[in-house]
């Protein structure tokens, strides 16, 4: 596609007629799109090539996976699994993110809380969410709540450290200015300065956490709660690699959708940067 120089440029840099005009965002997007498509084609070709030398239970070819994908979608199994995963993904991610940010802000802000909790935090931090499955079952049962718990733990730590780091990085000078303009008390300072100033770190934490939560969907369903992860685990036991890939694609797709939506939100919230 030929694009006229200067057309569709929505920057306010002014008109700079000349040979070395910066490529418009559209040009850049188009170029990246072409390269990306090339990469996808190359990847599929390589996959196909390798898969054609292997039996289907080791590595199915792309058309086989496509066929399985369509069949799973048509039977309603995919939608049911996805719906079930969403039922624990959403509360798990929400609660974990919320508590993580709250704890990160509180401990990043208060040296007293930080000192008091540091030993406990250091012991709990390296525990993988999957190791807590016993608690999930004992406290909440083999149900959505149990699965949500596993997901929440994963989201918690990522958001905790992101918010903690963000709060630690807030400049004392901004806090001084805020106090000199009449801000009184910790809660008011946190609301009016600390949280907005650390929003870049906090939102990056949320985004990373969202990705981690989709990964944890598999772990959270390991003890029998239905969902995408359960389908992947069951298919693995039956050596149905085509089904495994099908549901991996569903996971990736969900991640992509949520991540893109959140990135748009983040860009709006951080328009000041």
């Amino acid at each position: 596609m030929a694009i006229e120089v200067g057309e569709g440029v929505d920057s306010d840099e002014g008109i700079d007629s000349g040979e070395d005009v910066e490529p418009s965002p559209f040009d850049v997007d188009a170029r990246r799109g072409v390269r990306g498509a090339g990469g996808v084609v190359a990847f599929l070709a390589l996959w196909w090539l390798v898969a054609s030398t292997q039996p289907t239970y080791v590595l199915p070819t792309p058309p086989v996976v496509a066929e399985t994908f369509v069949a799973e979608a048509a039977s309603g199994a995919m939608l049911a699994a996805l719906g079930s995963s969403i039922v624990h993904w959403v509360p798990g991610a929400t609660v974990g993110t919320g508590l993580g940010i709250a704890a990160g802000v509180a401990l990043g802000w208060s040296p007293y809380l930080d000192d008091a909790t540091a030993p406990v935090v250091r012991v709990l931090r390296p525990v993988p969410p999957l190791a807590l499955i016993g608690f999930a079952i004992a406290w909440l049962g083999i149900n959505h709540a149990g699965a949500a718990f596993i997901i929440a733990v994963g989201a918690f730590w990522i958001n905790f450290y992101a918010a903690y780091g963000g709060v630690e990085g807030v400049s004392d000078d901004l806090l001084d200015v805020a106090r000199s303009l009449g801000v009184r008390g910790d809660l008011e300072l946190i609301r009016s300065v600390v949280v907005p100033a650390s929003l870049p770190e906090i939102t990056t934490g949320i985004r990373t956490g969202i990705g981690r939560c989709w990964m944890l969907v598999v772990a959270s369903e390991i003890f029998g709660v239905p969902g995408i992860g359960r389908e992947i685990l069951r298919a693995s036991n039956n050596l149905r690699v085509d089904v495994v890939i099908t549901y991996i694609l569903v996971l990736s797709f969900m991640f992509l959708v949520v991540d893109t939506a959140f990135r748009a939100l983040q860009r709006r919230a951080l328009a000041w940067r």
Binding site: L174, R179, S180, G182, A197
Partner: peptide
């Protein structure tokens, strides 16, 4: 006894709130 609105501060490095217009 501490910073407050009876005292207006202006610093060399401005210290504006970058997230506010």
């Amino acid at each position: 006894e501490g910073p407050g609105p009876d005292l207006g501060l202006v610093f060399q490095e401005y210290h504006l709130f970058p997230w506010r217009t």
